[in-house]
Design a protein around this nucleic acid. Sequence first.
DNA 1: AGCACGCCGACT
DNA 2: GTCGGCGTGCTC
Length: 703
Amino acid sequence: MRALRVALPLPLPPMSYLPPLGEEGEALGRRVAVPWRGEVRLGVVVGEEEAPKGPALRHAIAYLDPAPYLRPQEVAFLEEAARYLFAPLGQVLADLLPPFPEVRHRVRLYPGADPKVLPKGLEALVDWQEAKGFDPKLLDLLREAGVLEEEVAFKEERGVLLPLKEAHPDPGLDRVLQVLRSLGHAESQAALARAAGVGVGRVRRLLEEGYIGLGPLPKPKPSGPSLEPLPLPERPGRLNGGRFSERLRLLKGLVAEGDHLVLFPEVSLLERFLAFFPEARPYHGGLSPREREALFKDPKGLVFATYGGLLLPFTPRSLVVVEEGSESYKLPSGSRAFIPPLAELRARLLGVPLTYLSLVPAVEVLERPGLTFPVPKPRVLLLDLRREKGYPFTGRALALLKQVEERGRQAVVLAPRKGYSALLLCADCAYKPTCPNCALPLRFHRPRRLLCHQCGHEEPPPLLCPRCASPLLEPKGPGLEWLWEELGQRLSLPLFRYAKEAKDDLTSLLEGAPGVVVGTTALLRGPTLPELALVLLPYADGFLYESDFRAAERYHRLLWALTELRPGRRPLLALQTYTPDHPAHQGLLEGSVEAFPWVEKALREALDYPPKVRMVKLEVRHRQEERALEEAFALRAALEGVAREGEVLGPAPAPVPRVKGVYVFHLLLRGSTERLSELLSRLDRRRFKLDPDPHRFVGLLED
DNA sequence: AGCACGCCGACT
DNA sequence: GTCGGCGTGCTC
């Protein structure tokens, strides 16, 4: 008998089911409802097989699509991706599949069945009933007995609320109408009421009076500036350098005709590009489920997507991956995939070309045949903190800021962290307050708070050193608040703050008024300042002290990104640093975006680090240090005799060896995907968490 | 993942 | 003597 392999969006391999009763047709790639632990779950058919002998399989309940939702190409991609990520297929499905729309589930007793089989109180089931409200266990009993007829289908698309008239005479109702007009459409009456900040009653009034109505989801209309494409004779494997505007035009050339998939690391960058590509259709998690479903059902043309776009069921003429080195391509949980290699896998399986498009090429993609366009030489000033006077602002840095002030321009001061300072340090005995749960110094926040950045622990700062009673507890490592306060005393320019969770109103700056923004790297995702003349990093090394082998590459990319903070004209980039000779600085001074990545690549090759080999991280944790270490050594022991020289590194304490009260140890495995797969098959996956392409080594892996 | 089962530590 | 920790097994 024929059986279906059904993948559920859970960290599990696919499960086998018999097809839904009476369904003989095409199964592969269709979404199905299946019984699962007494409940009903939704999944995707990823294969068919001869029903295995043994305990009788259960029937799937119903298909949710009349035709396949995923093509065989997408199913094959899921399988290969799962192999590549050392993750169960269901996990990859959970990461990439858009959420299932809501379903309506109705049940009744089969007309031929004897109603006496119904337990007491369930007599109503002789007629169709909503399954919700019945005990799922009871329903499953009837299902297993073969007397339950079921109907599972996605809820009807009700259409969306659209404005039908220009204005309403009542000002209160007109405001709601105008909110809807500015939104374009609303998902529901409640959603519109929420957006307008009024009760649902007013929305209902507008509906009754015919000022708004239900209709199909409107297609976004193309508009926006047009861009002259920059065509290339051949499609390169990577495109780097140039000005931002040139990269836009190069992209325009790459995707000029036919279907193309362009991947972005985050929505903010996608939208920045989208402004120049009115013809592109966006696809990302910020869209409503309805909008995602609509594009998924009919993918074509130019699609700008975040990682979920990898599963869109179409074969574009090409894939373009924008800013392949961005950390945001790393999924923090689930399979913890790093997206660019998956995009390459997808392109290879589809047999279409892939181009990486970025200012600075990632070390991983240097070998690809590519084009690097000349970059306007950045204006960089290195201020050696070992020689210059003044802290946290050197005299020369202050002079630059004064110039900005005199000329009525704008400046950005980039802080390596939020808060007041990285730590408090006793000037007499070098004691520093640390977190009771984590092996980390507590961050100092004004006026009087000590905060742990890993676990959120908070305590007041001591007035005297708890060890030597000295009153000299000094802040070290300037953060956003410190720099902000310092500048407040030194400058008369308006000051603004910009961090992820504390954004001042920058409207005046966007209109060209003078001012200084003190912020974190959130500024890179913020609005562009039209009069930006200076970008100052008072403590550039602060971005470098991250204990992983990609820290320098990341820092170099950050510096280059800062040179593009103002499109058109390059601001002066002033770096206060203890390491002016750092090779990343050298690359900037030379005006080469790829000189440093090549140096870095050579270094990694000498060390047998990625991209020369693949590396996976195993994380072991336990509240008791010795238990954690035992577990870690047990993993190593399990590989004894299998692993060859150099394939297993560690166990070693994590860079932050205790986080949130647990001790953390790492093992690193190195080798090809096949080899790593072989090694991992010897280990009990429940004893550790796995990161298939580690980018960070500090902190705990999320679930 | 999410849930049940089962075995050792600290407590009303 | 029980409550509850989490280690182990299983889901078609």
